[in-house]
Design a protein around this nucleic acid. Structure first.
Length: 125
RNA sequence: AGAGCCGGCCAGGCAAUCGCGUUUUCGCCCUCGGGCGGGAAGGAGGAAAGUCCGGGCUCCACAGGGCAGGGUGCCAGGUAACGCCUGGGGGGCGUGAGCCUACGGAAAGUGCAACAGAAAAUAUACCGCCCCGCACUUGAUGCGGGGUAAGGGUGAAAUGGUGCGGUAAGAGCGCACCGCGCAACUGGUAACAGCUUGUGGCUAGGUAAACCCCACCUGGAGCAAGACCAAAUAGGAAGACCAUAUCGCGGCCCGCGAUGUCUUCGGGUAGGUCGCUUGAGGAUGCUGGUGACAGCAUUUCCAGAUGGAUGAUUGCCCACGACAGAACCCGGCUUACCGGCCGGCUCUUUUU
RNA sequence: UGGGGGAUCGUCUAGUGGUAGGACUGCGGACUCUGACUCCGCCAGCGGGGGUUCGAAUCCCUCUCCCCCAG
């Protein structure tokens, strides 16, 4: 599955809109915010802070894992609402294996798409 | 065989599948600038890191004069430059190969040295040693005057060392050797060195990573520099100060350049492109040099992202994979690091 | 990415080469019938390493950590 620039958050305005009214999902490794957009695609943004991951190698590795998981699992599969995601790793994610991070992210995608569906039905009724 | 020293190089490999940037080519669409699809090439480091130095580049005068401030500090060379490197000298460590070294000046001046000690830089004298005078209890005595710095003790540091002469006791007071200073000579480009010569006759203690002096270097800011395009607008209103003014100019003065400047009210925007990788570049060979390095010839183009690209899965092999991710670019230094390979050399033991 | 500042008891701070000082907190004691206030005493510190020096919190080098500015 492709993962081009169209399926990424690029501008500060796009990030701000997600932070303004998000759906949340938390665990030990990540906090993920999501919000419905008007496009036909899911889009991904990442906020990897130096406070969470001090070394540049760790930051790059975590971003690669997130991108790879996003590409494989969810990028093209829009069922109902399309969403903008912002993934923020926590400092516990630095020491974890890629397999564990992948599993954690998959749970997040599922919960977020379900919550987004719930919210849409609630606003309609 | 064991222990060690120095220099250089590498930084898991191969295959398949799926992906992400850059460049290029072909086809299609089309609002003529992009989009989509296929192919090809290429895609992190020895430290990319820390930001401790130096330079390029950009703007401010083509960075100009003086003061202040800062840096460097044995000598010579290399370099675009350096606080770096190479070679040499002095000192220290090591049996050795080798390693370390902020290593100019204390007779230009100022300051500092707690405690202890008589005294901390001025020459003085606590315990002492010696001489003279007086007293008496006539000796291991006391008091007074004088001469000494050999011995003791303090301290991190105490006014050359050893021996002989000399003396009341002593003292570079004299002599010899050593050390030190100065001058000459010889060797060396120089630092510096010397079984060299003369001379001083011991005077001139320590501290300059204390101020300082001397020599040399040094303008400021940094790619969020800077330039361009597009959009928006206000070239608005009121007040004040004026050309001896204000700003560029960032420690100060001179000098140079530009020109209206400041305050209040009201209002607005931060999107894109370039800079951005052809460079003091790499590789190979030859020549010069002890070497750092330089010159010449041939050849080559080798990351340019902008929420920020190198990854994931599977299989095989082995030495079982450390430290770690470009953000304008180079030259160093420092720090982190699993291991492996190559070359040169030293010491100990054994054998021949 | 670039630029600047800092690190001293548990906390806040003095200290410009010579014994690390103060306040609050904590602990113990005194005062009180008890507690508070007050008084007295005690504990506890120079971010790590190396160098200069007789001697370093202080001077120099280096590493680590924290904070601030430029979006």
């Amino acid at each position: 599955m492709k993962f081009s620039r169209q399926s990424r958050l690029l501008k500060p305005v796009e990030f701000k809109s997600v932070f303004k009214d998000p759906i949340r999902s938390d665990d030990n490794y990540f906090r993920i915010l999501a919000r419905a957009n008007s496009k036909d695609l899911h889009r991904l943004g990442m906020a990897v802070s130096k406070k969470a991951c001090a070394r540049a190698v760790d930051r790059n590795r975590i971003k690669r894992v997130i991108r790879e998981c996003f590409r494989n699992r969810i990028a093209g599969q829009v069922e109902g609402e399309s969403l903008d995601f912002v993934v923020m790793p926590k400092h516990t994610a630095v020491g974890e294996t890629n397999r564990m991070l992948d599993n954690s992210l998959n749970k997040h995608w599922q919960t977020l798409t379900r919550k987004a569906g719930d919210r849409q039905t609630r606003t309609q009724t």
